[in-house]
């Protein structure tokens, strides 16, 4: 395989790590030096040729090839078998409705959630249960980091330069988790998006806000009401570019899911109920309409572990959730 990237020569491994800092290629953390052999291994694992185009950022005239994504995946610490997920995530991010330029250069500093579904989770160890959104799991951490390094190095979203985020936030280091498909018979997210249960797929969701909906009451309707109220704290405006594709993500925590399952709620029923409540007219400064076109635009995801009776709501930047099959 012939790689196209310019090469850099270093005295040794520590020298290479330092050089990537000095060249401005990292997120502030040390990287794994991307040797040609490691990059080729990534590409082989995803059956991709280096020049294959994963997508573009039209406003910036940026093209992202499989090779550049693989270089950044090595740097992030990914194992080769993770790369099919990284490549799918990059493709999803670069779909027009993911609005990559807007979501990565905004002053608001939005992040991206990368949600993994299907058998690949088990195969490579994507964590969907206890602590799935936090540190401690190589698969989640490095896949999410790889996407961010692609955004930085290939898409040119360099903080203080093209990226003018006022505060930015920690989710921009890495934010990847799986859906817990095994805890219940709820229809997995990717199946609701049209994939088969045997497929694996990723969802990319811009994250303007990650909100906690904590409700200890046992009644399902009270839990759902809290989730709806949480989303309505900020509401969701209409955006002509995103149009009817705009959506939100509701991550149902295990304690809430247990209550809902006991009462016979399906995902489809949950989103129907939430849609009716969330889209009621605005009635106050902190009770704002969530402008969604239809119930399917509420992506209900099961994740997290036992403990606090909490769910989470992701409100987007100016983008729609996008999906890609893991090939």
């Amino acid at each position: 395989m012939t790689l196209q990237s310019d090469t850099l020569l270093h005295e040794d491994y520590p020298d290479a790590v330092e050089a990537y800092f000095e060249n401005g290629y990292t997120d502030g953390l040390p990287i794994i030096p991307p040797t040609p052999e490691a990059v080729e291994s990534m590409l082989a694992a995803a059956h991709l040729a280096g020049p294959e185009v994963l997508g573009e950022v039209p406003t910036r005239n940026v093209t992202v090839t499989a090779e550049k994504a693989a270089v950044n995946a090595v740097m992030a610490g990914c194992k080769s078998e993770y790369f099919p997920v990284v490549a799918a995530a990059v493709r999803a991010l670069l779909q027009p409705l993911a609005n990559c330029h807007s979501t990565t250069a905004t002053l608001a500093g939005s992040a991206h959630a990368l949600i993994v579904n299907g058998p690949v989770r088990e195969r490579i160890g994507v964590v969907s249960g206890q602590a799935c959104m936090g540190p401690g799991f190589r698969t989640n951490a490095t896949i999410g980091r790889a996407l961010r390094l692609v955004i930085r190095n290939v898409c040119r979203t360099v903080p203080t330069e093209l990226d003018r985020a006022t505060f930015s936030w920690p989710l921009r280091y890495s934010f990847c988790f799986g859906e817990n498909e095994e805890y219940s018979d709820w229809t997995p997210n990717h199946v609701l998006q049209g994939y088969s249960p045997e497929d694996s797929a990723v969802t990319i969701m811009s994250v303007m806000r990650l909100l906690a909906a904590i409700e200890m009451a046992p009644e399902s309707e009270v839990i759902l009401e809290m989730i709806s109220e949480t989303a309505r704290l900020y509401g969701l405006s209409v955006d002509s570019f995103v149009g009817d594709a705009r959506g939100i993500v509701v991550i149902i925590g295990m304690e809430h899911q247990r209550r809902l399952l006991d009462d016979g709620w399906t995902k489809e029923a949950v989103r129907e109920w939430l849609f009716e409540r969330m889209t009621r007219p605005t009635i106050g400064k902190y009770d704002l309409k969530v402008n969604l076109a239809e119930p399917s635009r509420i992506l209900v995801i099961a994740a997290g572990g036992p403990g606090i009776a909490e769910s989470r709501v992701i409100m987007p930047h100016l983008a729609a959730p996008t999906h890609e099959q893991v090939r």
Binding site: S5, L8, L9, H10, Y20, P34, V62, T63, K68, V71
Partner: peptide, 18 residues
């Protein structure tokens, strides 16, 4: 031991611009 690595960017800003 010398190590060869790859550039993670598309080169200097504007290097491929018309």
């Amino acid at each position: 031991m010398p190590l060869i690595t790859l550039d993670p960017t598309n080169g200097p800003l504007g290097s491929d611009a018309a």
